[in-house]
C-alpha cells in the first residue's frame, strides 16, 4: 500500500473542489472496495477525500411518489428501509444478496455503484489488464473467464460490473444525481456505466471529481411486486454468475409493462430492453418468455469458459418472470 493523504470533506462542493485540484485523488465512501484495491496496488490515489459526512444518509419520499436515496446511505440501511421494501422490494433483495452483513454496514449506495470489476486479472498487478493499464492487453480473454461477460464485450475487455444494487436500479429506471466541477446533473442509471469498447479503463461516464449525491427511484406502481434472483457458485458471499431483476405489470393476462435487467453478464447492468419490447402486449407465457430471453441473448459473445451463462441467463429470466406472474395470479 502506498502512502496517501486523507481529508474529510465538510460539504459536497468542497469535496468536489478538493478532488478537482488533485488528478490522483479519489472519494472515499465505505472503502470496502477501494481500500482493498489500494492494498493490492491496483488503486493508487495520492489523496482520499472522505465523503461519508457530506452525502445524505436519508431515504425520502418524493412528491411524485418516487423515493430519493442519499448516496451516503449504507447498504444495510437501504435494504432495511420499509419504504424501499414495500415499493421496490427488488432493490432491497438485490442489496441483501451482496457481500456480507459487515460489508453492507460499511458500504454506501454511491460507492456500491462505483465498485470495480472483480476480474482476477484486474485485481492482480502482476498480470496484464487493459482496464488497469490501457494497451497492456487483456489476460482474461485467453485466461480464466468463467465469471466474465457475454454481452457488450470488446476485444479489449470482458469484465463484468459486480454490483447487485445497480442491476435492480437499472430495472427501476433509477436516476443518478451528481455534483461535479461543472455543476450538477442527473444521469439515468442505465447510462451511468458504459461498455468497455476501446477504453475499458473507464467504468462509467462520471468525470474526475464528480460525486454521486443521491439516487432517485421514480414511481412505479407495479414494482411492489418485483424480484431479484441471483445465481452464483455458493449460496452466499459470491458475485453473480447471472442475476435477474424483474417486475411485471399484467392486465387481463397481457403484459402491460415489464422490467428486466441482468447482472453478471456485462460491463454494466444490462437492461434487457429487447426482451421487454417483445413481451409487452402479449401473454406472459413460458414460450414467449423463452423467445424474448433468447432474443436478448442472441448477440452474446461467450468465451471459452462462460458459454453456460447464455442458457443460465435465459432460464433465469424465464423462471424469475414466471414466478412473478404466478404471484400475480
Amino acid at each position: 500500500m502506498r502512502p496517501f493523504r486523507y481529508e474529510r470533506a465538510t460539504d459536497p462542493s468542497s469535496a468536489v473542489a478538493l478532488l478537482a485540484r488533485s488528478p490522483q485523488a479519489a472519494f472515499l465512501g465505505g472503502g470496502t472496495n477501494l481500500v482493498d484495491l489500494m492494498k493490492l496496488d491496483v488503486a493508487r490515489p495520492e489523496l482520499l477525500v472522505d465523503v461519508r459526512g457530506v452525502t445524505s444518509r436519508a431515504i425520502e419520499e418524493l412528491p411524485d411518489g418516487g423515493v430519493r436515496i442519499g448516496a451516503g446511505v449504507s447498504n444495510s440501511d437501504l435494504a432495511a428501509d420499509p419504504l424501499i421494501r414495500r415499493r421496490y422490494p427488488v432493490v432491497a433483495q438485490a442489496v441483501l444478496t451482496g457481500a456480507s452483513t459487515q460489508l453492507r454496514n460499511l458500504a454506501t449506495v454511491g460507492g456500491n455503484l462505483l465498485q470495480r470489476t472483480r476480474c482476477v486479472y484486474f485485481q492482480d498487478v502482476s498480470t496484464a489488464c487493459n482496464k488497469r493499464e490501457p494497451g497492456a492487453g487483456c489476460s482474461a480473454i485467453e485466461g480464466h473467464n468463467r465469471d466474465l461477460a457475454i454481452l457488450g464485450v470488446s476485444p479489449d475487455c470482458i469484465a463484468t460490473h459486480p454490483s447487485d444494487l445497480a442491476v435492480a436500479l437499472a430495472a427501476m429506471d433509477a436516476m443518478v444525481r451528481t455534483i461535479g466541477p461543472d455543476g450538477s446533473r442527473t444521469i439515468p442509471l442505465t447510462e451511468l456505466h458504459r461498455l468497455p469498447g476501446s477504453e475499458p479503463q473507464h467504468d462509467n461516464v462520471l468525470t474526475h471529481g464528480e460525486l454521486i449525491t443521491a439516487v432517485d427511484l421514480p414511481p412505479l406502481a407495479f414494482a411492489g411486486r418485483s424480484y431479484y434472483r441471483k445465481i452464483r457458485d455458493r449460496a452466499s458471499y459470491a458475485f453473480a454468475l447471472v442475476s435477474v431483476a424483474a417486475a411485471i405489470d399484467l392486465a387481463d393476462g397481457q403484459v402491460r409493462d415489464v422490467r428486466i435487467a441482468l447482472g453478471g453478464v456485462a460491463h454494466k447492468p444490462w437492461r434487457a430492453t429487447r426482451a421487454e419490447d417483445l413481451l409487452r402486449g402479449g401473454p406472459a407465457t413460458e414460450d414467449r418468455l423463452r423467445r424474448a430471453a433468447e432474443a436478448e441473448l442472441a448477440d452474446a459473445q461467450p468465451q471459452a469458459d462462460n458459454a453456460f451463462k447464455i442458457p443460465l441467463a435465459r432460464n433465469a429470466i424465464v423462471r424469475t418472470v414466471l414466478d412473478l406472474v404466478e404471484v400475480a395470479r
Binding site: 472483480r118 482476477v120 485485481q123 489476460s139 485466461g143 480464466h144 455458493r234 449460496a235 452466499s236
Partner: peptide, 20 residues
C-alpha cells in the same frame, strides 16, 4: 501462461459459506 493461482483470495477461492 503466468504459472500462478489466479483466485488467490477468499473472495474468489470459494470455501463453503454458512448458507451452503
Amino acid at each position: 501462461r503466468y504459472g500462478h493461482v489466479v483466485n488467490h483470495d477468499l473472495a474468489t477461492y470459494h470455501v463453503s459459506s454458512n448458507a451452503d
